[in-house]
Design a protein around this nucleic acid. Structure first.
Length: 202
DNA sequence: TGGACGATCCCCT
DNA sequence: GGGGATCGTCCAT
């Protein structure tokens, strides 16, 4: 069953943990892609690592919309990352999707990622074990910024309930401030989880 | 108007 | 484990 607005309009950290195990579905053209969300990070207001920290700008304004929207941003000159907007309108908070376990449309994902079938079997988890890899596999780019996840193009479905003892918690990856906040959540032992936050730039 | 810097990935050693 | 690719965004002149 498709998740409705009430799922997203709860505290950001609650939504982040609850998103683990849910199924994200992406329809474009005649294709349907689906995957289980296995790793996320929460970004909050008054959080120096968040795009919303210094207030609303042209880039981050979707974060301040009502919850249940998709916030897509472009980074490092070549990558897109996708977030699920949480909290009430006027508050800039979101949950970054860092990794999924492919379920449906794997051939399409491989095509989107420009990976060879044989290479993928050797390192198959490289297909979607990172925020920009997920976006490329699911063909999520600039036009998908601001999409309503209660619509029919991209949405979440009920999946398995992940008990709290099976949820791993750590610092967020790739940030230089806010490292002390343990706002990365992942399904323990899942092979599609990206990596450990052992190194930090700068 | 320009410069510094990324919520990353991939290839090289 | 390290560094280069590559450009949009933001803030300081």
């Amino acid at each position: 069953m498709k998740l409705s607005h009430s799922f997203y309009s709860r505290p950001t950290l609650t939504v982040a943990k609850d998103i683990l195990g849910k199924i994200i579905v992406r329809k474009f053209g005649t294709h349907t892609l689906a995957g289980k969300i296995v790793e996320v990070e929460a970004y909050r207001q008054n959080d120096p690592a968040s795009h919303s920290f210094r207030g609303m700008t042209g880039r981050n304004k979707i974060m301040f919309n009502q919850s249940g929207m998709l916030y897509v941003y472009f980074t490092y000159g070549m990558h897109f990352c996708a977030n699920i907007v949480t909290a009430e309108e006027g508050i800039g908070e979101a949950v970054l999707i860092r990794a999924i376990e492919p379920i449906d449309g794997i051939n399409i994902m491989m095509k989107n990622r420009n990976v060879d079938e044989k290479l993928t079997s050797a390192k198959k988890h490289d297909l979607t074990n990172g925020p920009a890899k997920f976006c490329q596999a699911f063909y999520i780019t600039r036009p998908e910024n601001g999409i309503d996840l209660c619509g029919n193009e991209i949405f979440l479905m009920d999946g398995e309930k992940i008990p709290s003892h099976a949820i791993g918690v750590s610092s967020r990856i790739g940030i230089s401030v806010g490292v002390e906040k343990k706002w990365r959540f992942y399904i323990k032992g899942n092979e599609w989880v990206s990596k450990s936050p052992t190194k930090h730039k700068r």
